[in-house]
Design a protein around this nucleic acid. Structure first.
Length: 350
DNA sequence: AACTCGGGGTC
DNA sequence: GACCCAGAGTT
């Protein structure tokens, strides 16, 4: 009990005296801006999300601006940030608040928690930062700091672990200044108690259990291991009459709602050459003549759970083909540039 | 309770 | 190559 109070006071002292971290949304009280920043930062580094936050605030100064925006435009702004369901839920919640709550962001924890894309972490962040309500945030930083300081080797990604760490976080919270406390523990985790921590300059090291038992490298404990899938994507960029064939990804799969060119997925390296391409075009799409075919070298993109490898094949056509009744669109480059593509494609296509 | 969802930085 | 990041939704 006493060590929690010590922990809290040491953190707040560090926050007042040594925390130099500056971010555009820090100290912000507008729940729209805090919410937007928290959604952008889910599983995303501050440095990576920074420019997206500024783009969004400039494009949509209020939640009503965002609610009235077109889906394609918002996805284009989100392009490259990943976890695209966040963008879908962002729009859904903006519209819910604009219509159901007349554009006023709710201030009650459970109401906020019920919104799409907002879980326990984000709800706690919003109500503590904006409304000074006593809810402790639990994110990756907090789990790392708590597990080390209190020497808890319960897996942080287990059901029991989540429960215990959430309770502990709530007990450590300074209920008189939840905003400052939550900010301090996350900044501390991000700058001092990092995965590779700076224990030599840490002002909590005298009472940190992991440090004093030499268990820093063993905490926090995670039980789930990551299994990587290998996938081969071959994108055929069909062009005809100044337009290219694109379609939207709708399946429950990566990159849902984003756009792509004609995709052929294989379980192994297709190792394209001109003969194989011509044979495939004839067999699959009944295309027997082309103006030009350009095969680009294989490319690779690493995702957390998948390794995407693949090819881009540009095919200039003599006539518009029947693409197996696929629900696609023939668009100009200008039109294509307004749509959001996965990084894998965007990096190739410029 | 286990899976799935991106892209990028760090070691 | 492994791990992690201001997590959440689905199955």
């Amino acid at each position: 009990m006493k060590n929690k109070k010590l922990f809290r006071n040491l953190l707040l002292k560090w926050h007042r005296e040594k925390n130099k971290r500056v971010m555009p949304w820090k100290g912000e009280k507008d729940p729209y801006k805090v919410w937007l920043s928290e959604i952008i930062l889910q599983q995303t580094r501050v440095e990576q999300g920074w420019s997206y936050y500024e783009k969004f605030i400039q494009a949509y100064p209020s939640i009503t601006h965002l609610a009235k925006a077109k889906d394609e435009e918002v996805f284009k702004l989100w392009e490259g940030l990943g976890y695209y369901s966040r963008c879908k839920n962002l729009l859904h919640t903006a519209r819910t608040i604009n219509e159901k709550y007349s554009g006023n962001f709710p201030s009650d924890y459970n109401t906020i928690l019920s919104l799409k894309g907002i879980g326990a972490y984000t709800a706690s962040a919003i109500v503590s930062f904006c409304f000074d309500l006593p809810y402790a945030v639990v994110d990756g930083n907090v789990l790392r700091v708590l597990s080390r300081y209190f020497g808890i080797d319960l897996p942080t990604d287990s059901t029991e672990g989540k429960k215990i760490f959430t309770q502990l976080a709530q007990e450590c919270l300074d209920k008189d200044q939840p905003a400052a406390y939550n900010q301090s523990i996350m900044d501390f985790g991000a700058t001092i108690c990092k995965p590779a921590p700076l224990c030599n300059v840490c002002c909590l090291n005298k009472t940190c259990i992991a440090f004093n038992k030499n268990k820093i490298d063993l905490l926090p404990v995670k039980q789930k291991m990551i299994i990587k899938k290998e996938r081969w994507f071959s994108y055929f960029i069909f062009s005809f009459g100044g337009k290219k064939f694109v379609e939207q990804r709708t399946a429950k799969d990566i990159w849902q709602n984003l756009y792509e060119f004609y995709l052929e997925e294989t379980t192994a390296n297709p190792e394209w050459n001109f003969e194989k391409i011509k044979e495939w075009l004839c067999k699959k799409l009944n295309i027997t003549s082309t103006r030009n075919i350009n095969i680009f070298p294989a490319r690779k993109q690493l995702l957390t759970h998948q390794t995407i490898q693949g090819y881009f094949v540009c095919v200039e056509l003599n006539s518009e083909p029947d693409l197996n009744s696929k629900t696609g669109l023939w668009l100009s480059d200008a039109e294509i540039n307004t749509l959001a593509f996965p990084r894998f494609i965007h990096q190739f296509n410029g």
